[in-house]
Write a protein that binds this DNA or RNA. Structure first.
Lengths: 185, 185
DNA sequence: CTCCTTTGCCAACACTTGTTGGCCTACACT
DNA sequence: AGTGTAGGCCAACAAGTGTTGGCAAAGGAG
């Protein structure tokens, strides 16, 4: 049961293959057999190392948004900073894959949805400070950012895909800035 | 192959059951057998009437957003009108279920995603007029509205769920208003 | 070198999936 | 009333799923 150095290589290969498959197909359609094939290994090894398909999934979606400390940023640039950070995460090879896995699965799998809610509470909401309507503001921000990610990376809505990152950031930043700063009704 | 009046009842029962199952579980996890059981008939009937699971799905997600004609509305209220109309669709029993089906499935099933893109082009984009960056504006609107629906009805993010419709409309309306009207970068 | 743990594969299990063909039953039209 | 057509169910299929047990080989520890 102990981990030897030799096995870590295979474990890693399984994990990367799993992330790619989960990201491409979602939880249900990604099969253990396909993941194992991608990793160049027998399906039974996947179970041996991660217990079950769900265990593998849990290991595959260990995400850290690495949100910046917003107190070190000029108030009127918080929106832009936040949007850019988020979009660049999605554009990145590794993090983007994990985020895709998470969003794709959260929509049909309640365990994954719970994980998203947790990430929201522990990472997004806390990063945006804790005023009285802090959680509401954070959720509004999340609605815009998740919506943008959904349209660009999942649904691939042409007009959103066509925009380059800088333009998209410039378009979304005022919205986020308002959710964070402006008075709510 | 002809439709008799007698069969319409069963066809309807299948369709309602299908919408409920697809909405609750998404395309992959909703099984023909479960849908048939809900409708109180044999699984083979589903195939007889709709050809295949995918044919049934196509029949289940026939959606008309019934977007209002924005030219009949004061310019400064377009955002609010649009947001309210959209959210009330989601809150409604029938349309909300279809929209849930569509979004849930579009995230993992590319056929459904294609359908969302079509609906976007034929209904949302055209409703928002056809200026030079009309599609871009429409897509930005879609990103916010879909994001809000995602957070409220699918992921059930507590702070968003807690808001009543009027408050949520008031919070989102300025964003949509800006995407429609304000100059883009 | 010897032994024992770990790695890995093969084959198979038990189950669920969408889908098909065959067989009764009941309705409707002449 | 007789007859043909459509509605409906049963049983079964082929394919694919996650998962398990057993057995060959390889590696390190004594």
């Amino acid at each position: 049961m102990a981990f030897t150095a030799r096995s870590q290589e295979t474990r890693g290969a399984i994990l990367t293959a799993a992330r790619r498959r989960f990201a491409a197909d979602g939880y249900e359609r990604a099969t253990v057999r396909a993941i194992a094939a991608d990793a160049g290994i027998d399906p039974s090894m996947v179970i041996r190392y991660y217990g079950s398909k769900e265990g593998l999934f849990a290991a595959a979606v260990d995400v850290d948004l690495r949100l910046p400390d917003l107190r070190t940023i000029p108030h009127d640039q918080v929106g832009e900073t936040f949007v850019r950070h988020f979009l660049e995460l999605w554009e990145g090879e590794g993090p983007g894959e994990v985020l895709t896995v998470l969003l794709r699965s959260a929509v049909t799998n309640d365990g994954a949805a719970e994980r998203v809610r947790t990430i929201f509470t522990t990472q997004v909401a806390t990063a945006l400070g804790s005023g009285e309507d802090g959680p509401t503001r954070a959720a509004l921000v999340a609605s815009q950012l998740l919506g943008a990610a959904l349209c660009r990376y999942i649904l691939r809505l042409p007009p959103i895909v066509a925009l380059d990152i800088d333009t998209l950031v410039a378009d979304l930043a005022p919205t986020v800035q308002r959710y964070i700063g402006a008075p709510l009704v």
